[in-house]
Computed example of a mutant assay.
Amino acid sequence: MTVTVLVADDQEIVRTGLAMILDAQEGIEVVAQAADGLAAVELARRLRPDVCLLDVRMPGLDGLEATRRLAGPDVVDPLAVVVITTFDLDEYVYAALRAGARGFLLKDAGAALLAQAVHAAAVGDALIAPSVTSRLLRAFADGGTRGTAQHRRPHHQLEQPFEPLTEREEQVLLAVARGRTNTEIAQELYITLSTVKSHVARLMMKLGVRNRVEVALWAYDTGRLRAG
């Protein structure tokens, strides 16, 4: 099955480059490109691509507001959005996740991670760049000094799961918290990629969280992992 993608970035050379990288990946086809947020929202609503890859900073309508309009909590039939940016700022990550994004990457992530994020978003998973995950953990370990109260998660997400985690789920939890990708987890634990995906999905269900960053933060808040 081919994953269709819309790419939105106001810089033509970046937009074209991202489209070329994605088109070169097996099972991915770029079906539209947009130079601003308003065009991205219009094209996305009309074409209904499997994944929308949106830059954060765009004229007219930025990527975060475009994400909110396409995937926010009030959207009846949300699209899958992956936010990508040059700017390594925590505020963007928090805002993107709150807006409904299923992934957050920096533009230097590389072709493999970019393709992995697109495929993950297409099937309902979330992938956050490992470097971003690690930094978010450090920020929360410092008492959230780099975020504000509105970024903190509801207290119910800090409770122990009703159904205890298995030993293997605990291992996967720590790997996710350290920013490992599914492929890296499979290699480290000597299990198949599909098994890893099943464990991650099960973890999110048990913990009542929506993405890998929230899995990682739960591991932190419950004392399973210390800041590095």
Rank of each mutant, 00 (worst) to 15 (best):
G144D: 06
H119I: 08
T166R: 08
D9I: 04
T222H: 13
D108L: 05
A201D: 11
Q157A: 12
T16W: 08
T181G: 05
F104N: 00
M204L: 08
L203A: 05
R152I: 05
L79V: 04
L137G: 05
P164A: 10
T86K: 07
T222E: 12
V30Q: 01
T192Q: 11
A186H: 03
L54D: 00
A24E: 13
H199K: 07
W218R: 03
R178C: 10
P154D: 04
N182L: 10
K107V: 07
A96P: 09
A115H: 01
A95P: 01
E163N: 11
E29R: 13
R168Q: 13
D62G: 06
Y190N: 14
L174D: 04
T166Q: 07
L64D: 08
A40V: 08
E159H: 06
R15M: 13
L18V: 04
T183S: 13
P164F: 11
M205S: 13
A96H: 05
T145W: 13
G208Q: 05
A149R: 12
L158E: 08
D88M: 02
D77P: 13
F140D: 06
Y94G: 00
P59E: 13
G100S: 09
V30N: 05
I28G: 02
E65F: 07
P59S: 12
A101F: 02
I84G: 03
L38H: 11
R102G: 13
L43H: 09
A122T: 07
I21D: 10
R68Y: 05
I185K: 03
A101M: 06
D142I: 10
L136E: 01
I21C: 11
V196G: 02
R46D: 15
E26D: 14
T67K: 03
V93G: 02
L64E: 09
A8T: 05
R202L: 15
V31C: 10
D221E: 15
V5K: 05
V76M: 07
L158F: 12
K107W: 10
V172E: 01
A44M: 10
L225T: 03
V83A: 06
L193E: 09
R152E: 11
L127C: 02
T181W: 03
A201S: 14
A227L: 09
M58L: 11
M58W: 05
T85D: 02
Y190P: 01
R202W: 08
A80D: 07
K206W: 02
L217T: 02
T183H: 12
Q187G: 12
P164T: 04
R45M: 12
L22C: 09
A44D: 07
L189C: 08
V51D: 03
D9W: 11
P73Y: 07
S194C: 09
L165Q: 06
A71S: 15
L22N: 00
P59A: 14
A139P: 01
V132Q: 00
D90W: 02
A66C: 08
E188T: 13
I191A: 09
L53M: 13
T16P: 08
D9L: 08
V14M: 12
Q171L: 14
A115K: 02
A101Y: 04
E26A: 12
E91C: 08
V172G: 02
Q171M: 11
D55E: 09
D23L: 14
G147E: 12
L217Y: 00
W218A: 03
D50F: 06
R146V: 06
F140P: 03
L137R: 01
